[in-house]
């Protein structure tokens, strides 16, 4: 039997392949971020529960705060100073979760609120702190180096270890070049994007496990990836002009977003049909912002925008109750 706690644990466990790939390719910073964010999330949750006079231990054990922290840790750039992760996590728990009434009542995905908040606030740090794959760093960052970057103590400069992500790089580089020139850059590796391809495949594998365990349904990931694919084929069919489909799917946060973030049940649409629209909306927005917006990746914004549309979707996508001729609509005032 599934319990709320077990659902959260399964989701956390399913991130493991992706998490391991991230650590393997991008270094200890990922692990530091994940642990730090999870710790902060649980501490903040405990504090707020205490302020709200709710049972702290019982509620904390449901694992939802830890999961929020984990997802944030996976989304944030690996070489981020500690306080940005702290701001992101604390505001995710306080602003996005508890100000709306706690678990189950939040309108927005807490992790993505936290992410968007720091992305908007600290654009410079957020978009340039992605670590290069370890194999491209001249001397790979050790755990100690990562810690010193994280804490801001010591004098390790991050500039030598960071760079644009393939998704970002391609978008700008393709303006003055053709695809074969752009992809000679080492960050693209031999296949699609060095490291990223494995990270995304890892999250894909974890996501499939979740579907197999019936913890999430296929609707949101399938419609999200489907819509993204259609958009990329429609508008980005020429790799000499724009970012190709392979990069859209296998670089950046696509799989993490499709299987772990967009499927957060609290902030997603309710019915199966609603979920299809919800996922498709995220896919379209994802491509739109990536291709024509100024941010390199867009999972957070796409998810948050569709979170806003959920009441609207729920209004129009009620399933047809058996015995009724057609599906009911809306809510009486």
């Amino acid at each position: 039997m599934l319990t709320t706690q077990r659902i959260m644990l399964w989701v956390m466990a399913a991130t493991l392949p992706g998490l391991l790939a991230l650590i393997h390719f991008f270094g200890w910073g990922v692990l530091i971020n994940v642990l730090w964010c999870m710790g902060i999330a649980m501490a903040t949750e405990a504090l707020i529960l205490w302020i709200r006079a709710r049972p702290v231990q019982h509620t904390l054990m449901d694992g939802s705060a830890a999961l929020t922290g984990l997802l944030l840790g996976l989304s944030l750039p690996p070489l981020l100073p500690w306080w940005i992760a702290l701001v992101a996590t604390a505001s995710a728990i306080i602003l996005a979760k508890h100000l709306y009434g706690g678990l189950g009542s939040n309108l927005f995905n807490p992790a993505m609120v936290g992410y968007a908040l720091v992305l908007v606030s600290f654009p410079e740090a957020m978009s340039t702190r992605w670590a290069l794959p370890l194999s491209l760093q001249e001397t790979p960052l050790s755990l100690l180096d990562s810690l010193s970057v994280f804490t801001g103590l010591g004098s390790t400069s991050v500039d030598a270890f960071t760079g644009a992500t393939p998704l970002d790089d391609y978008k700008h580089a393709i303006d003055g070049a053709i695809a074969s020139q752009v992809t000679t850059a080492p960050i693209y590796g031999d296949r699609v994007a060095l490291g990223w391809e494995w990270v995304n495949l890892g999250f894909l594998a974890g996501g499939l496990l979740l579907i197999q365990r019936r913890i999430i349904t296929w609707h949101i990931p399938v419609s999200l990836l489907g819509a993204l694919t259609i958009m990329a084929l429609l508008f980005g069919y020429d790799p000499d002009q724009s970012v190709p489909l392979s990069l859209h799917l296998l670089a950046g946060g696509t799989m993490l977003g499709a299987f772990f973030i967009a499927t957060d049940p609290v902030s997603a649409a309710t019915s199966n049909r609603g979920k299809l629209w919800y996922g498709a909306g995220i896919g379209v927005l994802l491509y739109t912002i990536r291709a024509w917006g100024s941010y390199p990746d867009a999972v957070a914004f796409a998810v948050l925008l569709m979170n806003l549309a959920v009441p609207f979707l729920d209004y129009y996508t009620r399933p047809r109750t058996r015995g009724h001729k057609r599906a009911g609509r809306g809510v009486p005032s």
């Binding site: 908040l117 720091v118 908007v120 606030s121 600290f122």
Partner: peptide, 11 residues
Amino acid sequence: YRQALIAVLPP
């Protein structure tokens, strides 16, 4: 202080 733009922006 490192500016926290979110506060200055409409959100």
